[in-house]
Amino acid sequence: MPIERSKQPVYINVIRDPLARMVSMYYFLRFGDGRISHSWLKQHHAWILPEHVNMTFDECVLQELNECVSPVKLSTQISFFCGAHPGCSEPSEWSLQQAKKHIEEEYLFVGINDDYESTVTILERLAPDLFHGLVAEFMNPPTDFEL
């Protein structure tokens, strides 16, 4: 259904830095987070060659192993911003361009949660009616919370 541009919602998103996200997932799949079971890790390691289990992410990239340089691994956020088109599920130059187009045309802002201070500062400046005082709250969070 066509919607007048003035009636469109304002899209804002905050994402994790893509490289930091990938590195974190790489180590999580090898060593867990202290909350997942040893048996889950052992089962997951079945597809990792034994000599690769203790490999650093940098070593993995230098050896160009698929789990570190695969376009699929690098494209999870691209497919999100690309949309629901069937072509968005496959990493390609087209899906990257679609994602960029959607961000440029539909989003007021996409922030990085790894730099939250800049993210809240920009949100407050872009939409002061919605986010007035956000920076002050972030810099000086209340110490007494009422539930």
Results as ranks from 00 to 15, higher is better:
Glu146Ala: 07
Phe138Glu: 06
Gly111Phe: 00
Ile78Val: 15
Val10Phe: 03
Thr143Asp: 13
Ser95Gln: 07
Glu59Gln: 15
Val14Cys: 12
Leu123His: 02
Lys73Gln: 15
His132Asp: 14
Phe57Thr: 11
Phe31Leu: 11
Ile78Thr: 15
Met25Pro: 00
Pro141Ile: 06
Leu49Pro: 12
Pro71Cys: 10
Ile103Met: 00
Phe28Asn: 10
Cys88Asp: 01
Asp115Val: 12
Asn140Met: 05
Ile78Cys: 05
Pro128Leu: 02
Glu124Phe: 00
Ala127Thr: 01
Cys82Lys: 02
Glu117Asp: 11
Glu117Leu: 13
Asp33Val: 11
Cys82Trp: 01
Gly133Pro: 06
Gln43Asn: 13
Phe28Trp: 14
Lys101Arg: 10
Phe57Asp: 09
Lys101Gln: 07
Pro18Ser: 12
Asp129Glu: 14
Val69Pro: 07
Pro2Trp: 03
Leu19Glu: 11
Cys68Lys: 04
Pro2Arg: 03
Leu134Arg: 05
Trp40Thr: 14
Val61Gly: 00
Glu93Asn: 12
Cys88Thr: 01
Gly133Tyr: 03
Glu93Arg: 11
Asp17Ala: 07
Ala20Ser: 13
His38Ser: 15
Val110Ser: 04
Phe31Val: 09
Trp40Cys: 13
Leu130Cys: 07
Ile3Cys: 07
Met25Gln: 15
Leu41Met: 13
Leu49Ser: 12
Pro142Phe: 03
Ala84Pro: 02
Gly32Val: 13
Gln77Asp: 14
Met1Glu: 14
Pro18Ile: 04
Phe57Arg: 05
Val135Asn: 06
Met55Thr: 09
His44Glu: 10
Tyr27Lys: 12
Pro71Asn: 12
Phe80Gln: 00
Gly87Glu: 12
Lys7Glu: 15
Ser70Cys: 13
Arg125Pro: 00
Pro142Asn: 12
Trp47Cys: 05
Lys73Pro: 01
Ser70Trp: 04
Phe81Trp: 00
Val72Ala: 08
Gln77Gly: 10
Glu4Asp: 15
Thr119Arg: 02
Tyr107Phe: 15
Pro86Phe: 02
Val14Tyr: 02
Leu49Asn: 10
Glu51Ser: 14
Tyr107Pro: 03
His38Val: 12
His52Pro: 03
Gln98Ile: 00
Leu29Cys: 08
Pro9Asn: 09
His44Gly: 13
